[in-house]
């Protein structure tokens, strides 16, 4: 350590503290700005018609995004339905078989999946589903989203179940309960809150995803719940409208952005409150 006069060192320490505080506070500026614009422009676009009507062609006043809201709901629901059983199963395997080759490589695979860019999922699911079926579809969109969600579900299941004391499992086994019943009726219920939180965070993540949907769900101006047809989604609407040349659509994009952000933040909030509220004492 360089030695300087004591007061000088105090001053330097003070200055650095101010610099750190300054940068930390400045980094909140974009958040404030984004929320400000979303609130200002989004509120202006949202009314009852916006939430309940189908889009209208350019030039016609009004129109809404109900197809995108319903489409997003379908996509998220189907993706959750696919990702949760597989993810919980894999997480369970990892928490039970901590060592071993299969666990090691599965963990590596999950890490890779977690770090992969979402557009890559879109490309792969296009090749797997869209190309053989020769049509964009809600199904392919949900598969892409399910793959995005899978790592979150696996991580949270594994972490939650690992934290459950081993004695709980032994208590059930010592009562003569078969292993599979012990897991299904004692271990999983005890970890339910953690797993649910993980699923909610996963849903929040995929709800805002656009890139995997570009060449899978594709978007559609109609309200259609056939899983083999293209379907609209809120993030797709934001993207398509925002990059269109029509100011009228830009306004709608602000409205859709506000709805989407609100939805995602609500999911995060629920997950956060849920973590505290549903916590189980051991």
């Amino acid at each position: 350590m360089r030695t300087g006069s004591y007061s000088r060192r105090i001053v330097i320490s003070r200055i650095m503290e101010c610099v750190i505080f300054f940068f930390a506070f400045i980094s909140l500026l974009p958040l404030t700005l984004i929320l400000f614009y979303l609130a200002k422009k989004g509120m202006a676009a949202i009314d009852w018609q916006f939430l309940t009507h189908l889009p209208r062609p350019v030039g016609e006043e009004g129109g809404g995004v109900v197809n995108a809201i319903v489409g997003s709901a379908i996509l998220i629901f189907c993706a959750t339905l696919m990702a949760v059983p597989l993810g919980v199963g894999a997480g369970l395997y990892l928490s039970e078989a901590k060592e071993g080759k299969l666990s090691y490589w599965t963990r590596v695979a999950v890490d890779i999946l977690q770090g992969s860019p979402s557009i890559v999922m879109g490309v792969v699911v296009y090749l797997w589903v869209v190309k053989p079926m020769q049509s964009f579809s809600a199904l392919s969109g949900s598969i892409a989203l399910a793959i995005m969600m899978l790592p979150m579900v696996i991580y949270s299941t594994e972490e939650t179940l690992k934290a459950i004391p081993c004695t709980l499992k032994e208590a059930a086994l010592a009562l003569g309960v078969p292993y599979y019943r012990t897991i299904l009726k004692v271990v999983i219920p005890a970890g339910m809150s953690g797993i649910t939180t993980g699923v909610l965070i996963g849903v929040a993540r995929i709800a805002g995803e656009t890139a995997p949907l570009l060449f899978t769900a594709f978007g559609s101006p109609f309200l259609d719940i056939n899983p083999l047809k293209p379907v609209a989604a809120l993030p797709l609407v934001v993207f398509n409208y925002a990059t269109s040349p029509y100011p009228q659509w830009w306004e709608q994009a602000w409205g859709a952005s506000l709805v989407l952000t609100f939805l995602v933040l609500c999911l995060h909030l629920t997950a956060k409150i849920g973590t505290r509220r549903w916590k189980i004492q051991f």
Binding site: P165, T167, L168, E170, A171, A172, L173, A174, L175, G176, V177, V186, P189, A190, M192, I280, Q281, F282
Partner: peptide
Amino acid sequence: RRRIGMVFQRPNPFPT
């Protein structure tokens, strides 16, 4: 295990 019961070091009632 149905004929021989067990009680553990730390109390472990099922939390759910």
